[in-house]
């Protein structure tokens, strides 16, 4: 009985159904009216969490549409972990399959970029790569070293111009240029010190990072990058990754 009541209350405050809606009246209105107060609080706080995790998505579709979209999501995706920073991980997929968003094919990937940014922000601390340690490795062994990506590193690859869309949907942007949405873009997110860096990278660089993430050796990953683009410049790319804290450790096999 008690469990049933709890389930009914949960279903009601989360807006799944009106399980608790007997016509009990009191001086303070019907029970349904009184439960609605809780329902609004629960739903609105989850909607607010989504809005703060996906600000660019909210800007793109507008506050009112976003609220309706988030409310739909909340009804079908109740939090399964008591931690608000991980609520919304399924929101990009929800956007991808939403009927009314079929015109905005790029929107789900913009949401993935924003989610990756949050993950990067909340990822565990770790020291960045020890460059002196890397420099001490014998040159003939460098091709076989294996880099570990920093816990805060994320790679988002999209067939759409998600970096440009994300950039022009930042709070301080006034002039929005015309964007060719059909240009594929790859974005890497890293967190040197305490700010998340969002960088657009070349296709070969993305292939390089993806290969390193699969624990391929430096030599093999560079080979994959070169097969994407023969002009892949390993030194320039590594330099940027070192400066932006993409890696945390390097191991000789």
């Amino acid at each position: 009985m008690w469990l049933e009541t709890q389930r009914a209350f949960r279903a009601t405050v989360t807006g799944v159904d009106d399980a608790i809606a007997p016509q009990a009246h009191s001086a303070h209105g019907t029970l349904a009216q009184r439960v609605a107060v809780y329902r609004n609080t629960v739903q609105q706080s989850l909607i607010d969490v989504l809005a703060s995790a996906f600000p660019a998505v909210q800007r793109i579709v507008g506050v009112r549409f976003f609220s309706a979209l988030a409310r739909d999501f909340v009804r079908s995706h109740l939090p399964d972990v008591p931690q608000l920073s991980v609520y919304g991980v399924k929101f990009p997929d929800f956007i991808a399959t939403h009927k009314r968003l079929s015109d905005l094919q790029y929107l789900a990937d913009v949401a993935r970029l924003e989610w990756a940014r949050g993950e990067s922000y909340f990822a565990a601390d770790a020291a960045p790569l020890d460059l002196a340690g890397l420099a001490a490795i014998a040159p003939e062994r460098l091709a076989s070293v294996i880099f570990t990506l920093h816990p805060a590193t994320r790679l988002v690859v999209s067939p759409h111009a998600i970096h440009r869309v994300w950039m022009v949907n930042q709070p301080d942007v006034v002039d929005v240029p015309a964007i060719d949405i059909g240009i594929a873009e790859r974005v890497i997110l890293t967190r040197p010190h305490y700010a998340v860096m969002v960088r657009l990278i070349a296709p070969a660089d993305a292939a390089f990072v993806a290969a390193l993430n699969r624990k391929l050796s430096l030599g093999a990953a560079a080979g994959e990058a070169l097969s994407v683009d023969p002009a892949f410049n390993l030194q320039a790319v590594l330099q940027d990754h070192f400066i932006h804290g993409t890696f945390s450790t390097v191991q000789t096999e």
């Binding site: 890397l134 420099a135 003939e140 091709a143 560079a222 390993l234 030194q235 590594l238 330099q239 070192f242």
Partner: peptide, 8 residues
Amino acid sequence: LAAAVAGA
């Protein structure tokens, strides 16, 4: 490769 790493 070694030169690229050293330079970076």
